[in-house]
Design a protein around this nucleic acid. Structure first.
Lengths: 239, 239
DNA sequence: GAGTGGTCTAGACCACGCA
DNA sequence: GCGTGGTCTAGACCACTCT
């Protein structure tokens, strides 16, 4: 007989309970959670068990812990985490902070490859955003972003969209991006690239296809970025 | 007055002690460490403190822990970690396993930009390895690897080098690569690329500049890879 | 069954932030 | 000085592996 996992540590059940309660809005981003001791009493487990769950949540960047102050629900609106998934930086390693412009938002039916990437039905509706990204006033990337209407109703009302979309998702739709999966390849600029990026046809571009996953495990964004890497590089640090 | 860190948790001192002893070869890759209890007695701390240090070491992939068996020094020779830092995969997500060929090893003086990247003196000696990388018999990347002679004496004696260099570093030189920092950009194939990769001049290539860091924090490898991403993509998953 | 790592508890004390 | 998270300890029991 095929068997189920069966055994679940207590702290991992606490973890899940807290994720659900945060996702449900019981504590909003930036708000402070009850103390370890209070949670322990409330949940009927020891403080050590709560601590282990909170440690795991902090590792997953769902919460921020500060000795002497308390435990806070992570907000993506903080400078350091705002562009957590923006990996383009200057060759010397200094972080580049992007701005946006020339935004176009359309509502249309999903394309089949997008539906596959987002694990959605073939007849879903999506918003498609196309915008140019700038660093130091120079255009460095074109982004095409696809967002399921079902997750982001009335998104077009927020146009022009803010620079940091993930903070918007969190604030307006309660969607917390916790991880991304990207596929990179090199390509060359075509005519539609050259208009927005101001580079000649044939310029090498770094193309990044990204799927973003929310706290509850759903794929909530697909985006394709085409970047001019003549002045910026894409940084990957891994261990 | 400017102050030093001052306070160091016990478990972090245990962590460092264990790293040093592993690096010194007291326990070799694949060997089992003493039990938590034994280490606790030996180091004069409680089992919980040893556990916290071991948990951190496991997170940093220095050791592998197996319930019921014991704690083992990580070996990079295991399939799953062998190509831990090789991120090219097929578009469907299946991992690609590379092979190597056409290797050339030279010994020369370090170039100044390499010395800067590796934090070495300008007059250091290095080995330069150039090789072609294949997936499914197709050439997909050119690698130029620079290794300081001081860390890898007589490296050329091991020619032809094995497919998985990091396992060689570990086995022959006691150097454990624990993290890498990479800078990616798009470029265009030049004549010397076309010969090894069999692509026409002008083909877009993904260029990856990597610095690898060993367990003791030293930069022990610099490499430049130029990859044909027409059939493979570079994968980045982050959270 | 013996031995290992994994979980859970309870309690003490420490470092930090803030009022 | 109080409350918070962070460290450290000691001990019990559980799940897993191997003999």
């Amino acid at each position: 007989m095929d068997s189920a996992p069966q055994y679940r540590p207590l702290y991992s059940q606490v973890y899940e309970t807290l994720v659900k309660r945060i996702a449900a809005g019981e504590w909003k981003p930036g708000e402070v959670l009850p103390s370890e001791q209070a949670l322990a009493v409330q949940l009927g487990v020891s403080q050590g068990t709560v601590r282990k769950a909170l440690d795991a949540l902090a590792l997953d960047k769902v919460i921020d812990r500060h000795q002497g102050k308390g435990t806070y629900v992570a907000e993506l609106t903080q400078e350091r985490s705002l562009f957590r998934f923006f990996r383009l930086s200057r060759p010397d390693g200094k972080r580049a902070v992007p701005t946006s412009g020339d935004e176009i938002i359309k509502r249309r039916r999903i394309k089949s490859f997008e539906a596959k990437a987002l694990e959605l039905a073939d007849d879903a509706e999506v918003f498609e955003i196309v915008r140019t990204r700038f660093v130091d006033e120079h255009p460095i990337a074109i982004e095409r972003i696809v967002l399921p209407v079902q997750y982001y109703p009335d998104l077009d009302r927020h146009s022009p969209l803010p620079n940091a979309l993930y903070a918007l998702y969190q604030r307006e739709y309660g969607i917390n991006i916790v991880s991304t999966h990207e596929k990179l390849r090199a390509d060359i600029a075509r005519r539609d690239d050259t208009r927005r990026l101001g580079v000649p046809v044939g310029t090498p571009l770094l193309q990044i296809e990204r799927v973003a996953v929310s706290m509850n495990g759903k794929r909530v964004e697909w985006r394709l970025s085409r970047c001019d890497t003549s002045t910026l590089v894409y940084d990957v640090t891994s261990s």
